[in-house]
Design a protein around this nucleic acid. Structure first.
Lengths: 125, 125
DNA sequence: TACTGCTATATGATTTAATCATATAATAAG
DNA sequence: CTTATTATATGATTAAATCATATAGCAGTA
């Protein structure tokens, strides 16, 4: 039986938004603090709307725990103190591993979409 | 501090293996039962090794609950009874929504990999 | 001064998909 | 009669994603 609220699949599924590799790439491009990264992430296209700030801050701390990034407080400049993150050598290495995974993923997606298109065309003809 | 067992990122992260859209596409191509789908999924390229049978059977039941697929028992033919799944009209519709999401995802991945390559080249030169 | 909005970080609770570990059973092959 | 293969299934655990919320500095303005 279908439930009242349709909560199955692409809309609600805990989707992998590639937060970790995205953050690593952005931090390789340029050291930044969490708040900056929120807007940068949005432009990367893995999020439909806004990325969740809580998720981003948590992920950054988590990555620091593993020495993928490191941070220090920045008190200079206006506004509240910022925690500036930079990527580490280990982080760059780790990103490389991510990229290998994402290349496969990209290829698999391409194949998937191709198959879908083919099937779609067949059923339309 | 990094933990003893490095459990961060691309190796261990609960990755989205696109189980739901994969199953829907495969079932659109051809009705099948769970055990068949295990091998078909492997060929789709979203899994590094073997897909987890438990996950597949659960997902199929879950999708049936939402009328995306329907099943019936097949007792004819050798071997233990099989539950043969077919996609429904709702399922095909739902797959279409998935595809829209995956097209965006595909584009975002392409952009990501492009940016990585650029940065990688810069740092090598 | 008080209020509002923006910048900035953070954490606790909840949800749920993914994973891990098993259990069951029919049949085919040796 | 034992083992491997085919086939489905479920309970427990883990961890990521999400939701809700708290804190606080500073800028502009009414």
């Amino acid at each position: 039986m279908p439930r009242k609220n349709f909560i199955c699949g692409c809309y609600t599924e805990r989707r992998n938004r590639y937060l970790e590799p995205s953050l690593l790439l952005l931090l390789w491009q340029k050291p930044a603090h969490g708040y900056d990264l929120l807007t940068s992430l949005e432009k990367m296209g893995f999020h439909e709307s806004h990325p969740d700030p809580g998720a981003v801050y948590k992920k950054l701390r988590h990555m620091e725990e593993f020495n993928l990034v490191k941070s220090h407080w920045e008190t200079t400049g206006g506004g509240p103190a910022k925690r500036l993150y930079r990527i580490t050598k280990l982080g760059r290495n780790h990103l490389k591993n991510w990229v290998a995974v994402l290349q496969k993923r990209h290829a698999a997606l391409e194949n998937f979409l191709q198959q879908y298109t083919t099937l779609s065309d067949e059923n339309q003809a």
